[in-house]
């Protein structure tokens, strides 16, 4: 619980990330509340992606990345108390470019559960339908689940990737600029699914598109040069930011 009495899903304390000599993120403290959509905005190299990738320990895959500080998921230390694999099942991630694996639509969705040891075909089939429904893709692909996941349109691919993440039944979903390559219609569908998912998940959205942050975020944080300048309710950030730099970024003076 935080001071406002909300349930804290992710608690970040003193998080710092660096690559070789370059520092990407300096000592960040932040609580992410259960059931919110936290939008993170900021120019490139502001540390927002490094932050996102620390939350599911994807940073560790970078050969020169060094991470320090603590992150608690429901009070559990994500580095010391659970394995990276089980963490990533609870914190799903959507990438900027949709990357369906070179498998069928069905196998793309069941990939995570199968790796976790789920074998039963009926369970897997149910998961496929449920996840595709939640990602607003079921009606478009239900008759061709055995088609390659790489042969559908870009917008459909991104929703397939969302469905694939949902099949893990995660608590938290991280979005890394999920609509940067999509047309407005597909973007609207992705955003619609985010608002729906918010009812049962905690969402963290990194975006270069400030309008998108304004449309979906319950709260918005502004990152600049490895530091969090400001965080607050989305409406406040966009109408009355406390910091001059936030205002400059939002009105488009840099970035």
């Amino acid at each position: 619980m935080n001071t406002a009495g909300e349930k804290v899903k992710l608690s970040v304390r003193g998080l710092a990330v660096s690559y070789s000599a370059a520092s990407a993120l300096r000592s960040l403290d932040l609580d992410i509340v259960a059931g919110e959509i936290l939008s993170i905005i900021g120019p490139s190299n502001s540390g927002k992606t490094s932050f996102l990738r620390s939350l599911n320990r994807m940073n560790e895959l970078h050969p020169h990345a060094r991470t320090s500080g603590t992150i608690l998921l429901d009070g559990v230390d994500i580095v010391r108390e659970i394995s990276a694999e089980s963490l990533r099942k609870r914190i799903g991630m959507i990438f900027a470019m949709p990357v369906p694996l070179p498998l069928s639509i069905r196998d793309n969705i069941t990939y995570g559960p199968r790796m976790a040891g789920v074998r039963d075909t009926r369970t897997l089939d149910a998961l496929v339908e449920e996840s595709l429904q939640a990602a607003y893709l079921w009606d478009e692909v239900k008759d061709r689940l055995d088609m390659s996941g790489q042969k559908i349109s870009g917008g459909q691919q991104q929703r397939l990737c969302i469905a694939r993440t949902l099949a893990l039944k995660p608590d938290v979903i991280l979005y890394d600029e999920p609509c940067s390559g999509l047309d407005p219609l597909s973007t609207a569908k992705v955003e619609e699914s985010m608002l729906e998912l918010r009812k049962s998940h905690t969402l963290v959205l990194v975006t270069n598109n400030t309008k998108q942050a304004a449309r979906v975020g319950t709260r918005t944080a502004f990152f600049l040069m490895g530091e969090m300048v400001e965080i607050g309710p989305t409406e406040k950030i966009f109408t009355a930011p406390a910091d001059k730099r936030t205002e400059d970024y939002i009105v488009g003076r840099f970035g």
Partner: peptide, 27 residues
């Protein structure tokens, strides 16, 4: 084999060997 396949596989909770076995080797 594109690095993004490995990323995706890891992000779905696969271990390193599972990633090699299921996302990289077939390609």
């Amino acid at each position: 084999v594109p690095a993004s396949y490995r990323e995706v596989s890891f992000s779905l909770g696969a271990s390193r060997w599972q990633t090699v076995r299921h996302a990289v080797l077939p390609r």
